[in-house]
Structure formats: structure tokens, C-alpha cells
Design a protein around this nucleic acid. Structure first.
Lengths: 201, 201, 201, 201
DNA sequence: TATGAATGAGAGTTCATTCAT
DNA sequence: AATGAATGAACTCTCATTCAT
């Protein structure tokens, strides 16, 4: 017979997992993937060294879970935030508003992502890119391509435009003074890109 | 002994140093700071394990030297490339042209920089930022502030504008498909920013 | 409560124990003592990790039980198989016939024994030797000594002869091609030993 | 500790390697492959933990080197010892004489081999079998097949006969009282096999 | 009695750094 | 100046064992 009632047990497992993930976010954000120490994460979460291996089979898997978790929340929040916007320009506007609000709320999480996107290890980059695919798809389809079709934006290689938008977006998620400045001015930043996309030749 | 004639010993030292730095660029670019292996660098340069410690007192110091070296060349080349440009817009244009040319020529070096700028360790970020201070100063003073004064650009927080420009710039230096796309379209990217800075409210 | 009727609880306990032992045989045979994983055994038997500790107090104890179990069956079967043989030579013959039949039937069990007999840890070897004492006694008393007395075999150190017989016997229980070959030719092997024991000086 | 003089470089490296191998023989013989501890070997040889990795890239490689080393000496000694024997029977006789003399001289080494031959891990067994291939080839070709051709031995499956001979041979190399008894009576053991092979049907 | 999450010692391996040569 | 063997702390991961339920 299970130690706890099934529902209670699962809830507790979920809770432990959450705690481990939270500790992992901090560790990865502070030290990067290769510098992060699995045992330290487990102890920071209040458990013994080995406990984390009851939840994640390896450092890689833990990292992927962390990134996936952040990305899921991040994407959901942003896509939700842009949901009511009728036209591409206002979608872009809201993308930055919602995204940077998330970044202000979870600076560590978002820094981890920004850092991992520039990681030298291709596996790491792939994990992040895969997790953020929904956001990239939204930007390319619903903002850039829709905006070009609807004459909101001038003709421009949509992939290039997407790359620039996401570059600025994740630039605002990074660590440092510049990133903070960007993050705190979602409107201004969106406006620059908007005008740029509208008129650039 | 005349100053302009370095002794043979000094010349050799310089040469060894250069080789070690070159090997270090590849290693750091490929594996990141924590993943890089000092012994491997020394051997890749054609020397024995211990030799590198005759030139750099520690891994940290070697990394700082690598970054400083790249930054010096990078800044010099870019500032040189923008030297003939009379007005801020054309300076911006040439910034991207020259900078991305450098990036195409030395992708490893430039990737290392982009990665280090997002490094989780603040010390690392500081090293890079300090090394790129000349470039940042140029962008802020000679492009953004000059452009605002001369009515090329609309009134905008100059630090924010600088942050955005540099964000896109270093985004083009990173690894990955998106960065490559950006890097190969310096003109289009500059144009987006130019129009954006000209008209955004 | 009548002695011959075990309570249902006891029957169930017995059944669980049997299942755990069976799983343990496979694990120990496949991975050896140090490589075996107690939790994996418990789960392979269809129970949770901790369950096995309700039946065996430690890995050592489990191993001893496994060995004892195999040895008991093995000895019983062999001694039964030789029961009808009137003279020492035919006892030797039947020893190999019955023993190798068991080995063919339970290759994992028998391999485990052969391996444990050569284990580097003296405690392990002692467990096995102790468990196989009945078989050794039979070989020494009823085959070798009886054979020498009855002039079936030449005069030879009975303990040495016993050691050789058992050496070949357990050699046929091991893993590998050679062992299989031996195991499949009980008659030929017995014949070699028989002639050897009859005439060697 | 030992920082060697340059002139003696190679010799000293060889010496260190020998010391590590000797320590490894004891460790593997005492604890078996999975129970052996690499760090303990290095320290038992008088060096720090990591030192052994300057000589052997992994535990597996160290083990293979140990086995190869023992096997080379063992085979050489035995083949040398049988060199002057003109006919198969005397070759068999000398095989046991020389082989068991080696076993008496290096009981740990030989025990390690006997144990590894029965290891549950197939990789381990393969390493040993491969290293002892010369001995097996000699027994099969120069003793068994030659003996059958020359009518020294009766017709018998040569592979089976080889398996039995090697089984007894390595049985005499094992740990334990029985093995010691066998090892100390090379003549009697050879005689048993000889007569057996001569007349068995 | 059965469960399985938690534990923490200990494994193999890596590598920045030292220093005698 | 150059070498590279030696060092040992630190890493990821495993697993026998415990114990609250």
C-alpha cells in the first residue's frame, strides 16, 4: 500500500519537484550549465545529495526540465498577453510588454534562458531553441508574415525580421545594465522595431 | 639598445603568446569558460601542458587576455571602418558593415564574445564589457547622441538606443542560424534600426 | 493449529520469498555480487524497492540465501540421481549426468555458483563451499574412497582426486563456450576421469 | 612524491607503471573487478589518486593491462617450460609442472585470472580469454590434436579435451584449499588426465 | 506487511595548478 | 624557458539501506 494516499503522494512529489526545479533555476542562472553543481542544487532545495536523482535522471535532463518549465510559462504568458491584439503591430507591442513583464518578475529564469541561448555547447542551445519554438513560430507567423501581408511592414526577409525581433527580445532578458534598460522600456523598444520594420528598405 | 628593435627572445615570446591565444580562442569558443581545458589549449598550440603557465598565471587570466585581445582587434577594425563616415546614420551603417565582416572572418572569436557577454558569472561579463567600452562609447557618443543632436534621430533615451543597437550588433555575433542570418544582412539590419531611431516616438 | 497446514499468511510469505530469490539468481548471475542491484531485484520480482528488506536483512544475506537455495536443490537432485548406482564408477558417471542436466536446466543458477566459487572475497567462497559440503562429502566418501577401497581406482590422495573431480564438475557449470562443451558431454568427461583415476600412477 | 631526473625519464615511467600494475594485481585479486577501487590502487602504489590516470585511461584499460601482463608472463613461462618436450604426453606433463610452478610463485596474479575467467561480465571474460589464446592454441594444437594424430590419445573431440585440460589447469590456479592441493601435485594431475585421454571411450 | 522517497558514502573520472628537472 | 608527471579537490552519478506511512 502506498505510503500516502495516491493523491497526497503525487501532490508531495510534485511539490518536491517544484522545489528542486526552483533551486536549479537559481544555480543554472548563477553559474551556467557547466558550472552548476547538482549536489548543491539538491541541498539548496533542502534535500540530500542523491535525492535529486529520484526526480531527474541526469544533469542534462534536469537542465532540459528547467528550461522546458521556464519556456512553457514564458510562452504561455506571452501568447496569452498578445491574445487580444488584432493587428501585427499591436501584437509586437504586447509581445514586448508581456515578455518584459515576465522578465522583470523572474529575472533569474529569464537570464538563464538568455545565457543558454548563447551557450557554446550546441546541445544546450538546441534544448532552449526547441523549448521556445512556439514563441518563435508566433513571431514569424502572426507578427512578421501577417504584418508583411497586411502591409503593416515593408517587404523584408521574414526570417531575418524574426531573428532581429527575437534578438532584441532576448537581449532584454539578459543580465546587466543594458538589458535592464531595455526590459524597462518595452514600449520604446517595440516602437523602434515597429517603425524600422514599417519603413526600412 | 634601441627601443624599436626587440630582442630575438622577446619576439619569440610574443609569437608563443600569440599561438597560445589563438588556441585558447578556439577552445573557449567551443566549450565555454568552465568547459575549456587549459592543458588541451597548451597542447593544441604545440606546447607542453605546463608551458601556458609561463605566459598566463591562471585560467581566468588567460580568458581575460583572450577577450581583451579579440576586443582590441574588433574595436580597432570597426572604428577604423567607420572613420570616414560623416553623419551618424552612415556611421551606424558602417558599424554593422565592418563589424559583421569581422564576425564573418573570425566567427569563433566573435561567438566567444557574444557568449561571454551573457555569461552567468558577473566577473566574466565585466571583463568583456570593459574591453568593449571603446565601441560602446563610440556608439553612444558619435552615433546616438550626435544623431539626436543633428535631428537624424528622434528624441530617445540615448542609453536605451545604445543598448538596443549593441544588442542587435552582438546578436549578430552569436552562434546559430539566426545570428548568421543577421550577420549576413548588415545593410538590412542597419536600415531597420535607422528607420526605427528616426521615427519612433 | 495443525503443523501440516501452514496458514495462508505463511504460504504467501513463502511465495514472495521464492519470487525474490528467483529474481536474485538472475541478477547475481548476470552482474556478479558487487554489480548486483538490490532494488532492481526487488522490482524485477514485482515488488517495491524496500520490500526485499522484509525478507532478507542485507545484500550479503540475500546472496547467502540464494546460494544456499541453489546448492540445496542442486545437491538433492544430484544425490538423488546417483542413488541407484551400485559401484563408484557408475556413481561418478551418474554424478556428471545428473549434475550437468541440472546445469543445462538452470544455467544462470549454476553459473552463479561457479562464479562464486572463484570469488575474490573469501566470505563468498566460504558460503558456497559450505552449501556444497554434502556434494563434496559424497564425492570423497562414496566415490573416491569407496573406489580406492574396492580397487576401482588406483591409490591416489583421495582429497586430490576429489578436488580434480569437483574442479571438472564445476568447470562444466561455468559460463562460456568451453563450459558448455563440457556440460554437453557428461559421459565423455566422466569416462576421462574414470580411466584416469583407474590407472594413473 | 618521486619527481624524476630527466635522464632516467623513460626508465622511471616504466618503473611507475610497474608499481601501479603490481598494486592493481593485488587489488583486483583481492576484490575482483567491480570491487576494486582505482584510487586505492594508486595510493597503494605510493601515489595520489589521480596519478594512475596518467598511465591508464580507465579502470577497464587498467584491468586489461593487468591481465595482459600476467598472461604474457604466464604464457611465456609455460611455453618455454614445454619447449623441450618431444611428445604430447610429456608436453602435458610439463604444462602442469611449469604452469603450477608459476601459480605457486604468483598466487595473486593467477587467482585474479582464474576469477576473471568466471566473471559474470562477458567483457571481463573476453579480455582474459583473448590474453590466454596462445596457451589455449598450444594445448589444442600441440598437445591434444598432435596426441590424437600420434595415437597417444584415443579419438576424442579435441575441443572437449582442450576444455577439460584447461578447466583442470585453471582450477589449479584458483583460490582455496582444493586449488592448492591440485597446484602442488602437477605430476599426479597430469597423470590422471593422461591416462584418461589415452583410454577413455 | 508493503511501500518508495530519502539518504549519504563512495565510485570513476577530470583538470587547474605546481614544480623538479 | 619549457616540460609533463604528480597532485588532490571536485564533479556526476549509483545504490544499500532506512523508515514514516
Amino acid at each position: 500500500m502506498p505510503r500516502y494516499k495516491r493523491s497526497e503522494g503525487e501532490q508531495i512529489k510534485e511539490e518536491v519537484r517544484r522545489r528542486l526545479l526552483a533551486a536549479a533555476v537559481d544555480e543554472f542562472a548563477t553559474r551556467g550549465y557547466p558550472g552548476a553543481n547538482i549536489n548543491r542544487i539538491s541541498r539548496a532545495a533542502g534535500y540530500a545529495q542523491g535525492t535529486i536523482y529520484n526526480y531527474f535522471p541526469s544533469k542534462q535532463a534536469l537542465f532540459a526540465a528547467v528550461v522546458g518549465d521556464i519556456a512553457a510559462q514564458h510562452c504561455e504568458l506571452v501568447l496569452q498577453g498578445t491574445a487580444g491584439a488584432a493587428d501585427p503591430p499591436s501584437r509586437l507591442e504586447r509581445l514586448f510588454a508581456a515578455g518584459f513583464a515576465f522578465a522583470e518578475g523572474f529575472p533569474n529564469a529569464v537570464r538563464l534562458i538568455a545565457s543558454a541561448m548563447q551557450a557554446p555547447e550546441p546541445e544546450v542551445r538546441e534544448v532552449v531553441q526547441h523549448a521556445y519554438e512556439p514563441l518563435r513560430a508566433y513571431v514569424e507567423q502572426e507578427i512578421v508574415r501577417a504584418g508583411c501581408l497586411g502591409k503593416d511592414f515593408c517587404a523584408i526577409d521574414p526570417r531575418l525580421a524574426t531573428a532581429v525581433i527575437l534578438g532584441v527580445y532576448f537581449g532584454g532578458c539578459a543580465a546587466g545594465e543594458d538589458a535592464t534598460r531595455i526590459r524597462r522600456s518595452p514600449h520604446a523598444v517595440a516602437s523602434i522595431l515597429l517603425e524600422g520594420l514599417k519603413r526600412s528598405r
